[in-house]
Design a protein around this nucleic acid. Structure first.
Lengths: 342, 342
DNA sequence: CTGAAAGCGCTTACAG
DNA sequence: CTGAAAGCGCTTACAG
């Protein structure tokens, strides 16, 4: 059996409460006694029991709120699976977790929900933010003034007082794509990028990482630059039609976000599936199918489950154990899939 | 706050003990009462508190044993990190975990330790087995006769009564390598496999998966077959020297196990690093460095941490919650790394 | 077949 | 500054 608080109390000749005060820095204790108890605990290798702690904490009813924007998208549905698993786990320790879904992007609604959660005495909030000045101010207010820690996931608002960000290192994702593109084109020929919006920071970062790494590591590749398909398959298809027309020797396409179906449709029409290598992002159903049947060559993804799961759990550790995340940035793994390890 | 046992007891007009008996199928309860209580619990969505359960279980002192062969190898050192994390977690819930390391392969020692653990009343054992008839018999005896569940990890003994296996799907790993090789050679040219021993089942399975998938998906590739380097870098180097001599147009090498350094040394001497694509296995330091500096093109790996972590946790869930693993095979992800997502 | 009680290892008012 | 006690949600002998 492991050492308990009581055993340390006996060793030190004090009560359990005193040991608790010493070990958890609760104050109201004579410094000498505190030091002595800490030394004993260290010497005997005391490790607090999570079970005991959890049970005692159950009285406090820690409340964690989650605000999930773009909840209708396939990626966020996977994130939701991770969120729900973490909800179950945290709740089995006596916390309660409320997940609020928003279809699309709606900072006004996010702000409303945050205010509501504050009035309902939530202890911490995880949210997938969007670029919005009011939201930025509110995150700082919650973090600093109200003492309600905020975790951003999926996309970040870097210059805020958020506890940490959980999501992808988008630049690295783009570099990884560049590495794959370099390999499968043998470092030669024309390639092109199809992206969503110029204003989408994470897609832009993927493209930046890709561009940079192609120029550094594969200088023989002729990178034709970026086209924007505005997250629309129809637009993506038209653009691809044009591209294929203009560059009959095109060797590869890197798709930073959505539009994959449109691109593939165009290649299909032109009977170019075999000739042009496709690297796309995100393990959503359509993409997985296109990977399985060989239309796409590689998919790069972020671990959606981990994003959801960790968002809640890092808040839980903070509120429950007063343990801060190891870093302000919790990057999820960049995962490469071909059709065999999917 | 979540529903508690007590609340269900109040609802049903019985005592806590009776609810416990009903919900956990402990018998000694009138069937009608049991049904009624179960219905109530279901209706109100009762979820047991892990914290409460853990504390109550702490009295039992669940003991989990781990036997780690080949503990001196880099891969198993990573497994050990996962084992230690799970040990901490399980112990914080009142279990105790003993990890026994063995350098190299020594079934006799494994068996000795198992017997010792039995006499010390261990409740479950996780072990990385080797092919050995006595060991196979003993696993069955522990599982069936002594009622001590056994989990195999890293390599499996399939026809035993072990609770489950945690590790890699080696065939799929080989297929994944084939997919990469097909892409980076553009499906053409001569390739060759360098493996360890013919008797190593998991290396053999990797090679089988690779061979099969190359012939199916990339029929234009000229697969020159397998050479065995007996897990020795010096041998691997000599073999590669010969191969390069004999096949000046070789396009790719798939290395199923160790010997990577030797192969690369040979390529270096022949100044062929740029011309010959290398796909190797396992995220060990030497390999990671060779990947980073561009000598190797891809590394395929198993999640060593997960292997260690899950080995203990699945036993813990079994012993603690009487919850069996979802399947007899818990395959870890097959991970592809290039030098950007390492 | 059922209930009352003790106890698992913590935290937290409360009393001093 | 310190101690004694109650309580978190379970499980488990024990008594009936």
């Amino acid at each position: 059996m492991a050492i308990t608080l009581q055993q340390i109390a006996d060793l030190a000749g004090v009560s359990r409460g005193t040991v608790d005060r010493a070990l958890n820095n609760r104050g109201r204790i004579k410094p000498e006694v505190e030091q002595r108890i800490k030394k004993i605990a260290k010497d005997v290798g005391y490790k607090p029991s999570r079970a005991g702690r959890a049970l005692a904490m159950a009285k406090k009813n820690i409340k964690i709120g989650v605000i999930l924007q773009l909840a209708q998208t396939p990626f966020m549905k996977d994130v939701l699976i991770g969120l729900k698993a973490a909800k179950l786990e945290a709740e089995s320790f006596g916390a309660s977790v409320k997940i609020h879904k928003i279809n699309g992007v709606n900072p006004t609604e996010v702000i409303q929900i945050m205010e509501k959660m504050k009035s309902e005495k939530f202890n911490g909030i995880a949210l997938s933010p969007s670029q919005d000045n009011l939201l930025i101010k509110l995150i700082d207010k919650f973090s600093q003034e109200y003492n309600i820690p905020i975790i951003t996931f999926n996309s970040d608002l870097e210059n805020t007082a958020r506890l940490c960000f959980i999501g992808q290192n988008a630049v690295k994702s783009g570099q990884t794509a560049a590495g794959l593109m370099g390999e499968i084109t043998n470092g030669q020929g024309q390639i092109i990028i199809i992206s969503g919006h110029e204003e989408n920071p994470s897609l832009q970062q993927r493209a930046d990482g890709f561009n940079r790494e192609i120029s550094i590591s594969y200088p023989q590749i002729n990178n034709l630059g970026i086209r924007y398909a505005y997250d629309d398959d129809w637009v993506a298809e038209k653009i691809t039609d044009e591209i294929l027309d203009k560059y009959p020797n095109l060797k590869g396409i890197y798709i930073t976000g959505s539009g994959v179906l449109g691109v593939c449709k165009s290649l299909q029409k032109a009977n170019k599936i075999k000739d042009i290598k496709i690297i796309a992002n995100d393990f959503i159903n359509d993409n997985i199918q296109l990977l399985s049947n060989g239309t796409i060559n590689f998919l790069i993804g972020q671990d959606a489950y981990t994003q959801g799961y960790q968002s809640i759990m890092l808040l839980f550790y903070k509120l429950f154990d007063n343990k801060n995340p190891d870093s302000k940035f919790a990057y999820t793994d960049i995962v490469i899939k071909n059709r065999f390890n999917i």
